[in-house]
Amino acid sequence: MAKAGQKKTRLIIRTIVLLLLVSAVVYTIASKDKVKVLAVGDKAPDFELVDLEGNKHRLSDYKGEGVFLNFWGTWCGPCKKEMPYMENQHKAFEEKGVKILAVNIAESNLKVETFRDQYGLTFPIVIDKDKSVKEAYNIVPLPTTFLINKDGRIEKIITREMSEKEIISLMESIQP
């Protein structure tokens, strides 16, 4: 009897040790991207940025609505291409509870203003002057778009240019 008990203890100890070691390796592989990356399902970090008119925009102000959060730059070609589509859909979805918020990364007011007027954009455009929101959202390529649902959670992250069709279906997906 004592022997069987010993055998069982041995099996348990060995299993635990091996499991610990395996999980250590798996964890290391999983966390190899050392920066904390936002993922689908995470809560979108709140921020407060100022638009061209000096109005403050907080992400949390949009609670209860879907937010199409687009990071862009005036110098980025693909951003320019999708802007007119976004403008069209902004008009179509505004009443349906999906808002567009465009975050420019640290460019000058003049540049952003000129761009807005050139493309006749009517959705709010804020400028991330010190790149802290870029940092918080870990933005690498431009354009990057976060689709945030009415509960403030990230539904989808798009890191490339979108077609108008895509924009429509994405905005529908976060309609409250």
Binding site: L21, T28, I29, K32
Partner: peptide, 19 residues
């Protein structure tokens, strides 16, 4: 240093050392 196989190898080395 970030590849899964290298981390696995080092993990196996650690396991081998302990056991």
């Amino acid at each position: 240093y970030n590849s899964w196989w290298f981390i696995t190898l080092v993990g196996m080395l650690g396991t081998s050392i302990i056991i």
